[in-house]
């Protein structure tokens, strides 16, 4: 094949790809796609999967200490869901030709990122509630539009995840409502947790649009559907009345309704903190990755044993077939 013919064919494929996106149809695994699209998706889906898996840790620490059996069951189910969501997403990444073992290696070697929010510590049981309310709330804000992402397997994984995550957010908010009806000490725990998690939650939407170099291409490809700042604004607008209903104060003196814009104005997160946390200097980065690495390495003998048994079984079956 000549170069000219090759690039002509490639142009055909590219225009077919663009047309599919233009019609708001899904790209499926067998379709031709530009390398950049594939690479961007693998990175985004893998980071998303890693976030689910690392995100099990901050709350997971409270399962054995949950103060009622009902909360214990809910929390165990929730953290288990996160493992499931990680698996759905790794599954979607694998349709792009990525290999889960390789993605895991990248995570535990620090070569692939996960959401910065999970590098903050959980200091009291109120944190479980606030994570459900803020962090899962922000995640849903991010994820609901992704149910219409242009890549089919990713969009379908997000549908399933969003459906399951509405429970996560509700359990958190309900825990906080219960605690706010409890003792003064409990109300203080809730406010303290709100104070600590508010700004990191706003940072979950990523840097401001002007400072987010990959966003424009991702939106053109319909991998992302809204900009970071749009989603952040939506989160703030939705959360403010919920905070009022709960009876807590969001720790931002600049937070107020702007009649003209029809949105809340709010203060600027400390972007240098976000950069520091993303680049590894958050309070818990080291322990989060170390825990994941330890689980993976300590489980190696189990995975190897299962593979060895499967190989032996297959060999036995072959011998029987011959005999």
């Amino acid at each position: 094949m000549t170069e000219a013919a090759g690039s002509g064919a490639e142009q055909d494929l590219e225009s077919q790809f663009e047309a599919t996106i233009g019609r708001d149809q899904r790209i499926e695994p067998r379709d031709w796609m530009p390398e950049g699209y594939r690479r961007t998706l693998i990175r985004q889906v893998a980071q998303h999967a890693h976030s689910e898996i690392i995100g099990m840790q901050p709350e997971g620490e409270w399962i054995t200490r949950a103060p009622s059996l009902r909360r214990k069951a809910i929390l165990l189910a929730k953290v288990q869901d996160e493992a499931g969501h990680g698996l759905y997403l790794y599954s979607a990444a694998e349709t792009l030709g990525a290999d889960r073992a390789d993605l895991t290696e990248r995570l535990i070697e620090g070569r692939q990122k996960y959401s910065s929010i999970f590098n903050y510590p959980t200091l009291s049981f109120a944190d479980v509630g606030v994570i459900g309310w803020f962090v899962d709330g922000a995640a849903i804000c991010n994820q609901v539009p992704l149910c219409r992402s242009s890549y089919g397997p990713y969009a379908r994984a997000m549908v399933r995840i969003c459906k399951e995550e509405s429970f996560h957010q509700r359990q958190g908010y309900e825990l906080l409502m219960t605690m706010m009806r409890g003792t003064d000490e409990q109300r203080e725990m809730v406010q303290d947790a709100v104070d600590r998690w508010w700004w990191p939650s706003l940072m979950m939407f990523g840097p401001p649009d002007g400072d987010s170099p990959n966003s424009a291409q991702s939106m053109a490809w319909k991998i992302k559907r809204h900009s970071n700042d749009e989603l952040r604004q939506r989160f703030v607008d939705m959360t403010v009345p919920q905070a009022a209903r709960l009876g807590v104060t969001l720790p931002d003196p600049e937070l107020r309704w702007n009649e003209e814009r029809g949105h809340h104005d709010f203060g600027t997160p400390d972007w240098s903190e976000l950069k520091a946390v993303i680049s590894g200097d958050g309070p818990c980065n080291t322990e989060r990755v170390a825990r994941r690495r330890a689980a993976h390495e300590e489980g190696a003998w189990v995975r190897a044993a299962a593979s060895a048994h499967a190989a032996k079984q297959a060999a036995r079956a072959r011998e029987e077939a011959v005999a």
Binding site: R30, W32, T95, V159
Partner: peptide, 30 residues
């Protein structure tokens, strides 16, 4: 099957032909 059999550019992913051949139903209550 491939979407377009004439296309040589599927060749690099021919070892991934198995990936996700069908949709699953989006639940009504989403």
């Amino acid at each position: 099957s491939t979407r377009d059999e004439k296309d040589p550019f599927f060749a690099p992913s021919a070892d991934k032909v198995y990936r996700h051949p069908t949709f699953y139903d989006i639940p009504d209550d989403v």
